[in-house]
Amino acid sequence: MRGSYERLTIAGKQAVWAWAFLAVPLVFYGVVRFYPTAQAFYLSFTSWNLLGEARFIGVDNYVRLTQDPVFWKVAVNSFEYVALGLPISLVLSFVIAYYLDRVRFGHALLRALYFLPHLTTAAAMAWVWRWLYQPVPVGVFNGVLADIGLPAQPFLRSTDQALPAVLAPAIWAMLGFQVVIFLAGLKAIPRSYYEAADIDGAGAWRVLREITLPLLRPTLVFLIVISSIAFLRIFDYVYNMTNGDGGPLDSTKPLVLSIYQTAFGRFDMGYASAQTVVLFFILLALTLLQMRLLRKPR
């Protein structure tokens, strides 16, 4: 045995070690993740209501999806959550982390302030946010608008504003996470680069564009991919701020809420699985695309 290992090339030895390291995790993922995923794929071609055998019905569930106007609405909503949530949260968290990185005085306190929202539970905080969105005299946001002379807004009671209004607390809770990752990334940029820039007399904007951002790429890749997945899988805040409906008129309903209602409100597991499969491929395609676009330049 030992002899045959010794005879391997370096690459061969590496492969042996790699698979040895991966063995236990792969078995784990296989049982706990891949198998249920495969099951969802199978169920998406069946009609199954929890009890008894799943009945194979071919692509009926998928045909039904394409003809379901609510599904299209829900898919568009999910994209809106990402299209709005991703840039807004990343720009905000980067700006915060960028300046936080430069602050010495009270650094730990400031960082804790921004991280605190991430520690809260959605069910409790959604309740608070619903009150913040109330009309005057109760609602704080409308109170502020009134104070600065702007007209009151319906927020959650509007098919146009409800989605951003539900997204806001989700971003709020996510910022702390993104800021911490950005901070770790910023701290990791070797100081020598800044020294060099300093000597060159480069302006802050140029340093940011030519040193900071390129060197942050691994951090950015991670955050973009993880945040996109999080926004596409948004559920907690929508569920808790709209009485579990995703209303008004489906204007805030995301894919995962639709899946949840189909599976546990109607026990229609086949149709719920079909929606899950669609979500899976959207996420997979988006992730692969992002990783390709953000690849190391050669």
Partner: peptide, 20 residues
Amino acid sequence: VDELGQRKIMIDLFDRINLK
């Protein structure tokens, strides 16, 4: 026949009037 769905239809009925 579908409590969740029928409730939603009632909610939507008035939301369409009130919001749209």
